[in-house]
């Protein structure tokens, strides 16, 4: 099937890729850019392991056709620690031990940042509700709640 060229911004840098209509966003990131932080697990948009931000909104990369990326701004987990400095959410996940195997962790971190953008000071219910579309088979859920609260504090300190 016809290949086509797409242009987009990836973690702040303009990039180009030749893709086919049936390729999805996870494949695009892995095969063209070697970025494996968004990874396909359930393949159905339910687990959140393939979360990517497209124009500032979280999507499931495994259900997102790569052609739709043309002209957008894409941010992946690899874009969060620019200059080698961890994002406050990443720091909070490390400090609270909010993961075990780590496979779902990038998705949780991207979603949790979206949550704090919308609700800077979330309570447990808001956290559970917003993140309920991400799954962790190691079930580090209690620790993830701790991490999000710690990150909220860190963001406030930075803003102050």
């Amino acid at each position: 099937m016809t290949a086509r060229t797409i242009h987009f911004t990836l973690n702040g840098a303009p990039v180009t890729a030749d893709i086919k209509p049936h390729h999805n966003l996870v494949e695009l990131l892995q095969t063209h850019f070697g970025l494996t932080g968004a990874r396909e697990s359930c393949g159905q948009g339910l687990c959140g392991c393939c979360t990517v931000l497209v124009d500032g909104r979280a999507v499931s990369g495994c259900l997102f056709l790569a052609v739709r990326i043309d002209g957008t701004e894409v941010v992946t987990i690899e874009g969060l620690d620019a200059g080698g400095k961890l994002n406050p959410m990443q720091e909070a996940f490390v400090e609270t031990g909010a993961f075990q195997c780590g496979y779902c962790t990038p998705g949780f971190i991207l979603m949790a940042n979206q949550l704090l953008d919308a609700h800077p000071d979330p309570d447990d219910d808001q956290i559970r509700h917003y993140l309920s579309g991400n799954l962790c088979r190691c079930a580090a859920y209690p620790q993830i709640i701790d991490a999000v609260k710690l990150a909220a504090k860190k963001r406030k300190t930075i803003a102050a």
């Binding site: 948009g45 339910l46 959140g48 979360t51 499931s60 259900l63 997102f64 509700h129 309920s132 579309g133």
Partner: peptide, 12 residues
Amino acid sequence: LRTLSNVRVRNV
């Protein structure tokens, strides 16, 4: 809508 699927699906 608040409990329909998840945020990522609702975004798309």
